[in-house]
Computed example of a mutant assay.
Amino acid sequence: MAFTGINSFQLKWLAIVFMAVDHVNSYFGSQLGFPLWVAWLGRFVAPLFVFLLVEGFRHTRSRSKYAKRLGLAALVTASGNVVYQLLTGAYIDPMTHQPNYFLFLGPHNIFLTLFLLFCMMWVLAVMKQSSMGQKTILFLTFLVLLMLTAASEGGIYLIPMMLMMFALNEKRQRSKLFIGIFVYTMILLGLAISSYMQMPVYQSLYAYLTFDNEFMMVTVLPLIGLYNGQLGGTGSKWNKYFFYVFYPVHLWIIYFIFYLVG
């Protein structure tokens, strides 16, 4: 049988596996003896989810229902984050020893980021068909969403990704999208190396780049290239909602184990 590419369902499963590995590495990598390069493996996950989000935005039959699902998932994940922060006291600033309630947004809530990115796309889509007065209100709304997204998990790095994917969403524009992502990630690599050069030398460049590693989002390119535009799966509710359940549950398990061994 000839290889026909990878569908959306398969890409989601691939992202789920590497996302779980990335989170385990973040909390237990040193204890488990993981090499530093493991931190690079999951960097394609967030931009891949953004790519699939753009595809979902284009093809969904109800943008309002899609947004509600993302918003509800973000709220559920945020509730788990609040419990984690209260149990561990991680919301206390180690420098000032005062509560930093902004920390209650984290440590992880990709659903919040995806929800805000979805809303940004929705505003941009509506702007195309709006009057000048409406465009002004929508533009101000877009700026508010932009600031909120920049403050969410990975948002400041994913906003340019979303804008490129949203603007270059046709298959015939795929080469332009590839060039844009490559240039963007190489800029991030240059900024990371520049930051390293300005710091006191206490670790190797390799070690630093496994920490300041957002440039490795470039690894999403082969997966976008293999995407065949098909949904995949069986179309069941399990296929549709599994990730919405898996994401917060696997984080809660990691939080609980980390709290026990901490």
Rank of each mutant, 00 (worst) to 15 (best):
G154C: 04
M162W: 04
A167F: 08
L168T: 02
E170K: 14
G155F: 00
T136Y: 11
L148T: 02
I156Q: 02
M161I: 15
M127G: 06
M147T: 07
T136S: 12
S131N: 12
Y157N: 02
M165I: 02
G133A: 11
E153A: 04
S152P: 06
M132C: 02
M147W: 07
Q134M: 13
A150P: 00
L145C: 09
K128F: 04
G133P: 01
Q129W: 04
L146T: 06
Y157V: 04
A151E: 07
N169G: 02
G155D: 02
M127D: 07
A151L: 07
L146S: 08
A167S: 11
E153K: 04
A150M: 02
V126R: 15
T136Q: 15
L138K: 13
F142D: 00
V126L: 10
M164F: 15
S152C: 06
L145A: 07
T149L: 02
M162Y: 04
F166E: 05
I137V: 11
I156R: 03
L158A: 00
I156N: 02
F166L: 09
Q129I: 08
I159V: 14
F166R: 06
M161H: 13
E170C: 08
K135Y: 09
T149K: 08
Q134L: 11
F166I: 06
M147S: 09
L163D: 05
L168N: 03
S152I: 04
V126A: 11
L140P: 00
V126F: 04
T149C: 15
Y157D: 02
V126E: 14
S131L: 08
K135W: 13
P160I: 09
F142Q: 04
I159Q: 03
M162C: 12
M127N: 11
F139N: 10
G154H: 07
V126C: 02
F142W: 13
M132H: 08
L146I: 00
P160T: 10
M147F: 13
G155T: 02
F142G: 01
L148N: 03
M147A: 14
E170I: 00
A167V: 07
L163S: 08
L145W: 02
F142V: 00
M164G: 07
M132A: 12
T149E: 03
M162L: 15
G154K: 07
M165T: 05
F142K: 06
I137T: 07
G155A: 01
T149S: 12
L138I: 04
V144W: 09
Y157P: 01
A150K: 01
M127H: 04
M147H: 04
T136E: 14
M147I: 11
M164Y: 12
T136V: 15
L158M: 05
A150D: 01
E153W: 00
L143T: 12
G133T: 09
M132P: 01
L145F: 13
